[in-house]
Computed example of a mutant assay.
Amino acid sequence: MAGDRDRFSTATRLKTLGEQAAARVYRARGRRNRLTGRAAMLALVVCSLVIALAYPMRQYISQRAEIADQRRQAQQARDDEKRLREEKARLQDPAYIERLARERLHYVRPGETGFSVAGDAQDDDRISDHSAAANRPWYRNLWDGVDTADASARH
């Protein structure tokens, strides 16, 4: 009888252990589902944050680029202002003005004799072009100048 009781209690113990193992597996399966649900919720929250922050980040980057461009333009304007102030100061100098008048306009001082040297055929062409341009409307001359500048820029 003692053997039957041991066998019965072993069978009972095995049955109990099997039920406990099954219960653990069931609980683990339930936890895994619960963990998967939590992970899905976490993934949803993270995706929502990424989507919510994407537009402001794009705006931030765009505005930083615009600020850099504005700073570059401001520096260029300061450089231009400096150059123009220097030019203005030079134009206040009577000696500089006289030199420009002599070089560009072929002015001479009273008592000096000015000479003009006849140039080559290209100079004659420019003179005839100038007299022809004087008889045309101003806007034709303007567009011809633009076309000439464009043609010289291409070559």
Rank of each mutant, 00 (worst) to 15 (best):
D4K: 02
R5E: 06
D6H: 05
A11C: 08
T12W: 03
R13Q: 10
L14A: 08
K15A: 01
K15Y: 02
L17D: 06
G18H: 06
E19F: 02
Q20G: 01
Q20F: 00
A22M: 02
R24Q: 12
Y26W: 07
A28H: 09
A28P: 08
R29M: 05
G30H: 04
R34W: 01
L35A: 15
A39M: 08
A40W: 12
V45I: 15
V50G: 09
A52K: 03
A52I: 06
L53E: 02
L53S: 05
L53Q: 05
A54N: 10
Y55I: 11
Q59K: 01
Y60K: 07
I61E: 02
A68Y: 03
Q75N: 13
R78D: 13
D79H: 05
D80G: 00
R83C: 00
R85P: 00
R85H: 13
E86N: 01
L91E: 02
Q92Y: 03
D93I: 02
D93T: 00
R99M: 07
G111K: 01
E112S: 04
T113C: 00
A118L: 06
A121I: 10
Q122S: 07
D124Y: 11
D124C: 01
D125N: 06
R126Y: 14
I127N: 14
S128W: 06
D129G: 08
S131K: 09
A133C: 11
A134N: 15
N135D: 14
P137F: 00
Y139V: 12
L142S: 01
W143V: 09
W143E: 11
G145M: 10
V146P: 07
D147V: 10
T148R: 14
T148H: 14
T148G: 08
A153C: 03
H155R: 09
H155N: 09
